[in-house]
Amino acid sequence: MSPRRLLLTWGLLLGVLAIEVGASFLPIGRPARPLLLLPALLMVGMVAAIFMQIGRGPTVVRLFAAAGLLWLLILLALGSLDPLTRIVYPVPAMERATPAANPP
């Protein structure tokens, strides 16, 4: 790896970090704020590609990395499927669960 390429990557990473931190001060609404993860994902990609040289090892390296990502996606997607679609009727005061309150 040439020193220039390494230095450039390092600079870019810090640049993206600066943008990310800067963007967090913008008045982004609560539902949209997880978008702040996007720069982080970009940085992760850069670390994998350049620092970890994912392109250089045997092919199976890419396969393993892809498997890790795919299964993470399965976990996050199917794992949040139920919580995000569940309707909950909370009991007003947990400590005194009297049947006085009237749910649905």
Binding site: V21, S24, P34, L37, A40, L41, V44, V47, M52
Partner: peptide, 22 residues
């Protein structure tokens, strides 16, 4: 070593940035 770095890069917005909304 780089992986540990990566994990932190993801944790950083989850901990410090996303909750700091208006």
């Amino acid at each position: 070593w780089s992986f540990v770095d990566m994990v932190w890069i993801v944790l950083f917005p989850l901990i410090y940035l996303i909750g700091r909304g208006p």
